[in-house]
């Protein structure tokens, strides 16, 4: 099995929203396996989303079980048609992206989320997540909506102040 080619900016396809998965078949499972292989071969990525390899279906993989410093996590998660149903809190964290080489920036994300998603067999799941894993999921779901973290990077000073005032 070969890894898939990662799209990188300024590829316009990264802005394309993805469609929900309707068929939970072997084709889907084969794709998920190749997507996971691609994630593992990339430079230390905790997540990957299907549109990053030019496949515009709402499929993402998140795995925060192997971070340098252990964080609360649900292991290797295949997230199909994921929906965030609850947000709570916000915090700034540093992000990078397989599709944005040689750049990192600070992004505000919800601290805790509740999430519904199906797995590659079509089974529905609900997750409660916090911190790093919640951040990873929000980053990947953004990909499914055609949004990159560079669209959300906060400036060194002003954004945080603004956020406080208008919140």
């Amino acid at each position: 099995m070969e890894p898939l080619q990662i799209l990188t900016i300024p590829d316009e396809r990264l802005k394309q929203p993805s469609e929900p998965v309707t068929d939970f078949d072997d084709g889907l499972r084969d794709f998920v396996a190749r997507l996971e292989l691609t994630r593992q071969q990339g430079p230390a990525a905790v997540g990957i989303a299907a549109p990053q390899v030019g496949h515009f279906q709402r499929i993402a993989i998140v795995d925060c079980s192997n971070t340098r410093k252990p964080v609360p996590n649900h292991g290797n998660l295949v997230l199909i048609n994921p929906e965030i149903t609850h947000w709570d809190g916000y915090e700034v964290g540093r992000e990078g992206c397989l599709s944005v080489p040689d750049y990192t920036g600070n992004v505000i994300r919800a601290t805790r989320i509740r999430l519904t998603a199906r797995d590659e067999c079509g089974e529905a799941h609900e997750y409660e997540m916090e911190g790093y894993e919640a951040r990873a999921v929000q980053h990947e779901i953004d990909h499914l909506d055609g949004i990159l973290f560079i669209d959300r990077v906060v400036s060194r000073r002003t954004d945080l102040f603004k956020r406080k005032v208008y919140r």
């Binding site: 990525a45 990957i48 998140v62 410093k69 964080v71 964290g93 540093r94 980053h139 973290f149």
Partner: peptide, 8 residues
């Protein structure tokens, strides 16, 4: 505080 870089 540690900065845990996230690559996704």
């Amino acid at each position: 505080s540690p900065v845990e870089m996230l690559v996704g």
